[in-house]
């Protein structure tokens, strides 16, 4: 083993062509996009706010309970996300082992997030569906729009199609989540194997 060999390898390694300028520009563009990470939370908050205003304009016990339920779901989700990812933002130390542990922790928390997410993915749409359809039914009835049996059948048909559409969306979301879950589980297994490998290597080196 000689330094000449390493020097030769170093020249071969560093002499390879590399195209970096475009990549740097792309990254700098993405850092701007990263600042918009909070946008996905604005939409549900906006829906909640609009629903609150509508119920305030047309107050009813049903509307009040619906709004309360919406905000409780929202609050639960925020609290859960904050709790679930506690301690999973930065490593305990600036070492490879600590970063590996952090990656493993994040995988486990992601899987936990998925388990809770699946429950919410079913309960929340069901709640919203019942709330919205119930509210629409009340509005129509109060407005005197439901006069004949035919009117009721039209409303029932519309409600049925809406429900089927929502169920379809939920099934799609759950199917997609299953794909992500499988990927995360594979990632976790790989990281655990890597951790064992590195620990074994450390042990061998320590004891000769």
């Amino acid at each position: 083993m000689s330094d000449d060999e390493m020097e030769m390898w170093r020249k071969q390694w560093q002499g390879q062509p590399s195209v970096v300028v475009d990549l740097i520009r792309r990254v700098e563009r993405e850092t701007v996009e990263m600042r918009m990470v909070w946008f996905p939370f604005f939409a549900p908050a906006a829906v909640g706010a609009v629903a609150t205003v509508l119920v305030a304009l047309h107050p009813s016990l049903w509307g009040f309970l619906f709004i309360l339920g919406l905000w409780l779901f929202g609050a639960f989700t925020l609290v859960f996300v904050k709790w679930n990812f506690k301690g999973a933002w930065t490593p305990q130390a600036e070492t490879t082992a600590a970063y590996l542990e952090l990656s493993i922790l994040r995988c486990r928390r992601k899987l936990r997030d998925d388990r809770v997410g699946r429950v919410i993915a079913v309960l929340l749409p069901a709640f919203v569906l019942v709330g919205v359809l119930g509210g629409v039914y009340d509005l129509l009835k109060d407005a005197g729009a439901l006069k004949t049996a035919g009117d009721y059948w039209i409303v029932a048909g519309t409600f049925l199609w809406t429900s089927l559409l929502i169920i379809g969306i939920v099934v799609f979301i759950l199917f997609n989540q299953r794909r992500i879950r499988t990927k995360t589980q594979a990632e976790l297994e790989y990281l655990l194997t890597l951790q064992q490998q590195l620990l074994r290597e450390e042990g061998e080196n320590m004891f000769g």
Binding site: L100, S103, L191, L194
Partner: peptide, 17 residues
């Protein structure tokens, strides 16, 4: 380089070796 190595390991875990 510390960040690079850690990200590379995560990348391997996500994409496979």
């Amino acid at each position: 380089f510390r960040i690079a190595n850690n990200r590379a390991m995560t990348f391997l875990a996500q994409r496979g070796p």
